[in-house]
Simulated scan of single mutants.
Amino acid sequence: MTQRPLDAGTEPPLGAHLVTPRHGYCHHGIYVGDGKVVHYAGLAGSLRPGPVEEVSITRFAAGYEVSVEPSADPLYGRHAAVRRARARLGEDRYRLLTNNCEHFCTWCLYGESRSEQVLACFIYPRAALRTALCLFTAFLGAASPMRRTGPCVN
């Protein structure tokens, strides 16, 4: 299954796992309705980790395209996934390798914290190096504008 980009003005399904590309990684969140997304702010906006928060889809996207990650038989239905996401609002225990935004979304939908991006970095050292270099240049502000559309590649 491949990610499906959201059309402008289209509301994602309640409880949808949303993904948006960033410099060197993809950012993840759960759509909770009324144009809002619950996500682990993590390092999405600064060098300091942020808490689980509810923001507008526009703020979540930060100028990038947003796609819906296909969910194959989630353990929790849409309303339960939204309740689970909101139950963690304010949590401030972000850890890049063990408790990031993707771990958060898989926990909301499947009850298990998992990050394919982190796994890919351990399995494919080149992917880890490429991600680290992208993050480093983005944090230094030296990165040229990267593609703001298209699916995330792990």
Rank of each mutant, 00 (worst) to 15 (best):
His23Tyr: 15
Ser56His: 02
Val32Arg: 02
Gly50Trp: 10
Tyr25Gly: 06
His39Gly: 09
Leu75Glu: 15
Arg84Asp: 00
His23Lys: 10
Asp34Trp: 07
Ala81Cys: 07
Arg48His: 13
Ser56Phe: 07
Asp34Tyr: 01
Val66Arg: 01
Thr58Ile: 11
Val32Ile: 08
Val37Thr: 09
Arg48Met: 09
Leu47His: 09
Ala41Pro: 11
Gly63Met: 11
Ala62Cys: 14
Ile30Glu: 06
Leu43Asp: 15
Val82Leu: 09
Ser67Arg: 13
Ala80Ile: 03
Gly63Trp: 12
Glu54Met: 10
Glu53Lys: 00
Gly42Trp: 03
Ala81Asn: 07
Arg84Tyr: 03
Gly33Gln: 10
Pro51Gln: 05
Glu53Met: 05
Ala61Gln: 03
Cys26Thr: 12
Ile30Gly: 10
Ser71Trp: 05
Asp73Phe: 12
Asp34Gly: 00
Glu54Arg: 07
Ser67Glu: 08
Val37Leu: 08
Val32Lys: 02
Leu43Ile: 13
His79Phe: 10
Pro74Ser: 11
His23Asn: 01
Val68Lys: 06
Arg59Cys: 02
Cys26Ala: 09
Gly24Cys: 01
Pro49Asn: 04
Tyr64Cys: 06
Val37Met: 03
Tyr31Gln: 08
Tyr25Ile: 01
Leu75Val: 12
Gly45Ala: 02
Ala44Asn: 07
Gly50Ser: 06
Tyr64Ser: 07
Gly33Tyr: 01
Ala44Leu: 04
His28Met: 08
Val32Gln: 07
Tyr40Arg: 04
Arg48Leu: 13
Tyr64Ala: 07
Lys36Glu: 14
His28Ser: 10
Phe60Pro: 10
Glu69Cys: 15
Ser67Lys: 11
Arg59Ala: 04
Thr58Val: 13
Pro74Glu: 07
Pro51Val: 04
Ser46Cys: 05
Glu54Ala: 05
Val68Glu: 05
Tyr64Val: 08
His27Asn: 09
Pro74Ile: 06
Gly33Ile: 13
Val66Ala: 00
Tyr31Lys: 01
Ile57Asp: 08
Gly63Leu: 14
Ser71Pro: 02
Val37Ala: 01
Pro51Asn: 10
Ala81Thr: 06
His23Ile: 06
Arg84Pro: 00
Val55Cys: 00
